[in-house]
Design a protein around this nucleic acid. Structure first.
Lengths: 236, 236
DNA sequence: CGATCGATTGAGCCCTCTCAAGAGAGGTGG
DNA sequence: CCACCTCTCTTGAGAGGGCTCAATCGATCG
């Protein structure tokens, strides 16, 4: 039978506290779906028919404003949930989820959520924890946008990406999926031009190494220094 | 017995779907606390001993950065929950909650949360919905800070405050609690000087009427126009 | 009635955006 | 396999929105 291997998901936060039988019961209802690079898992405004767990790959969640501007909400790492609109009382997805690499997701029908939660109440408390964590992270972002200069915000963003999706390479830590200057601009509330200028500068100082949709942190510690620098701190 | 009157809270989102008996069971464990204007319900970093429902008054949730800058996370209206740190897996409060008016809160010990959730699973799903809504609102804020000018952000903030805590008065809609230019600055990621200048301008145009910690929207619709104006829209 | 806290307003600057070109890298189709 | 085309990145020049610094005014409260 084409059920999903329990060992793949047993340790995910969403399934914390479940035994093998329960897990099996939940996974019974899931389908595994391949999503090709640069295609959407779901789109903003679309009816929230399913919710997902990312098994493999990377997904970008982004929002478009009525006036057409785009902002990146977050990058989803393997093991994280996405599209839990139904659980938080939304009938439609509030953002678009796009695979930035060939990815694999587990999908459940949103309609199954109420029943699953009734049978497995820990699903609700686990999801509550996850959503709470995201709320904290989003507040951090608001604080940064309110109090820091662009340079600090970008440094923080890169460090966070490296922590979340870093892959060790010879010259440092690479961000393990394709990401453009534009993406970083949309994460930090600035323009791709400013990002490009800043990254060029950092590259010349040897802090990073970068190319087309590729960034490697050579000196993470130096970036931390930059990130924590006060706006008018001209020491160095 | 000094139990809390069920009718006061029966219609709150947190208690959606509970019958009188269940509500009674939950309220058994709550204490009602008066919080004087300008005193803290709880403080950022403090152990999250309790969670709360605001019954009466208004509370400001704010965060302080390591470097001392302050930002306003949100204003809590009567009926809303606050301090649900434990439910989202935090041992300490991530923000400070300050009564901006004499207020009354219901308080439960955080330690009781797991037990309450086990007995009344709907508490978890209701809270999930609430936290999800806050996440959406915070994302909206990020989008605004990323894409809009200060003027639009402040207009949006005022309109939101009026919707959430507006009181009809002769000359328009008053924000029903004391709020300073500084508070608005900390909500919108700007400075009190810029807020002051903008509000002065609006007052001269007759859009608002304002005083010490007091703002009345005279022409909400005009503010909507302002709020939705494109950055370079010089028509009018 | 004094003291404290909030609001106002001016002057000047600077960080970041906008506008504008152009170069490089990769992918694709003939 | 090469030529082309598209997408990303780079870099310059100039402008401006909002911040910083500074001083004063006004109101509320004890």
């Amino acid at each position: 039978m084409a059920t999903i291997d329990i060992s793949l998901v047993a340790k995910l936060p969403l399934f914390a506290g479940f035994d093998a039988d329960e897990l099996d019961g939940i996974l019974q209802e899931a389908r595994s779906i391949r999503v090709a690079k640069n295609t959407a898992v779901f789109e903003q405004g679309e009816e929230a028919h399913s919710f997902f767990v990312l098994l493999h790959g990377h997904v970008r969640a982004s929002k478009v404003t009525p006036t057409g501007e785009q902002i990146v909400v977050r990058y989803v790492a393997p093991g994280e949930t996405l599209g839990v609109a139904m659980a938080i009382g939304l009938a439609r997805y509030p953002a678009t989820a796009t695979a930035v690499d060939d990815s694999i997701v587990l999908a459940w029908l949103s309609a199954a959520w109420p029943r699953l939660v009734e049978r497995y109440p820990a699903l609700a408390t686990n999801t509550l924890r996850t959503v709470g964590t995201r709320l904290q992270e989003t507040h951090t972002r608001v604080v940064e946008m309110s109090t820091q200069q662009v340079e600090q915000r970008i440094a923080h963003a890169l460090l966070r990406l490296a922590k979340q999706a870093g892959r060790k390479v010879e010259s440092g830590v690479a961000i393990d999926f394709p990401i453009s200057r534009q993406d970083i601009a949309q994460m930090t509330g600035t323009t791709l031009h400013t990002v490009s200028r800043l990254l060029s500068g950092w590259e010349q100082k040897g802090l990073i190494e970068s190319g087309r949709q590729k960034i490697i942190l050579r000196e993470p510690h130096q970036l931390v220094v930059l990130a924590e620098q006060a706006p008018d701190d001209t020491s160095s």
